[in-house]
Measured scan of single mutants.
Amino acid sequence: MQIFVKTLTGKTITLEVEPSDTIENVKAKIQDKEGIPPDQQRLIFAGKQLEDGRTLSDYNIQKESTLHLVLR
């Protein structure tokens, strides 16, 4: 499924993921596309910060959901 990741600069990254993918996994995909190390990434969905060990389905993230990427 496709999800979108919006950065603070207003750029939107499109990722191909599975509901069973972990947040860690998603961060690795963002690193592949954008070169941002996962340890600098914070992903936010519905106002919650997403934890590395959880999966997209844990957070009920469905196709075409938009996550927000904050760098630390």
Rank of each mutant, 00 (worst) to 15 (best):
H68Q: 05
A28R: 11
Q49I: 06
Y59A: 04
I3E: 00
H68Y: 04
K48I: 14
K6C: 03
G10S: 09
L50I: 13
P38T: 09
L43T: 01
A28V: 12
L43V: 04
S57L: 15
Q31I: 03
G53W: 13
M1W: 09
Q2L: 12
L50Y: 01
L67F: 05
K6T: 15
Q40H: 07
H68V: 04
Q41G: 07
Q31D: 12
Q62C: 02
N60W: 06
N25Q: 07
Q49M: 08
S20G: 09
A28M: 15
L15N: 00
D32W: 15
G47Y: 15
L50R: 00
I23R: 01
K29W: 09
I3T: 01
N60D: 08
M1C: 02
G35M: 10
G10T: 14
L15E: 00
E18P: 04
D21P: 00
K6A: 13
L56P: 01
G47F: 08
Q49H: 11
S57W: 13
Q49C: 03
T7I: 06
T66L: 11
R54Y: 12
I61W: 01
G53K: 08
T14F: 14
K48G: 14
Q62N: 10
P37R: 06
D21E: 06
E16N: 14
F45T: 03
P19R: 13
V70G: 08
G35D: 07
Q62E: 13
D58H: 15
G53S: 11
T66E: 13
G53L: 06
D39W: 04
V26Y: 00
Q31T: 14
S65T: 10
E16G: 05
I23W: 01
K33D: 06
S65Y: 06
E34P: 02
Q31Y: 10
F45Y: 09
P38K: 11
T12K: 05
M1E: 03
F45H: 11
L56Y: 01
I3A: 01
G47T: 12
G53D: 15
T12L: 13
T9D: 11
K27C: 02
V26D: 00
T12R: 04
L15K: 00
R42I: 12
L71V: 11
I36P: 12
Q41S: 07
I36F: 11
T22C: 02
N25V: 13
I13R: 03
R54A: 14
L43I: 11
R54H: 15
Q49Y: 14
Q2P: 05
I13K: 01
I61C: 02
Q62P: 12
K11W: 12
Q31G: 10
D32A: 13
T14H: 09
T9A: 07
Y59P: 00
S20D: 09
I61H: 00
G47C: 03
Q62F: 11
R42D: 13
Q2T: 14
L69A: 03
K6D: 08
G10L: 10
D39E: 15
A46H: 15
I30L: 14
K48C: 02
E51L: 08
E64R: 08
T22V: 06
K6E: 14
N60C: 03
S20L: 10
P38S: 15
D32F: 13
V70M: 05
F4S: 05
R54S: 12
T7E: 08
D58E: 10
F45A: 05
A46D: 13
L67P: 01
I13S: 05
T12A: 07
Q31R: 07
K6G: 09
A28T: 12
D32C: 03
Q49T: 10
I30G: 01
I44F: 13
D52Y: 04
L8G: 10
I3H: 00
L15V: 04
Q62D: 14
L71T: 13
Q49F: 14
L71S: 11
E24Y: 15
I23A: 03
V26N: 00
V70A: 04
L43R: 00
T7L: 05
K33L: 09
K63P: 15
N25E: 13
V17L: 12
K11F: 11
M1N: 04
I44D: 14
P38V: 15
V26L: 11
K48Y: 15
P19Q: 13
E34H: 05
G35S: 07
F4A: 04
D58F: 12
I44R: 07
Y59E: 07
K63F: 11
A28F: 10
R42K: 10
I36S: 13
I3L: 10
L71G: 08
Q62Y: 14
K27N: 02
T66F: 07
G47M: 07
R42V: 14
T66K: 06
R42W: 14
Q2S: 13
D58I: 06
L71R: 04
L50P: 01
V17G: 02
Q41C: 02
A28S: 10
T22K: 07
V5F: 04
P19C: 02
L69N: 01
I44S: 14
A46P: 01
T14Y: 05
D58Q: 14
Q41Y: 09
K63A: 11
Q40A: 11
P19G: 07
G35V: 03
A46V: 09
L50T: 04
V17A: 12
G10C: 03
K6Q: 09
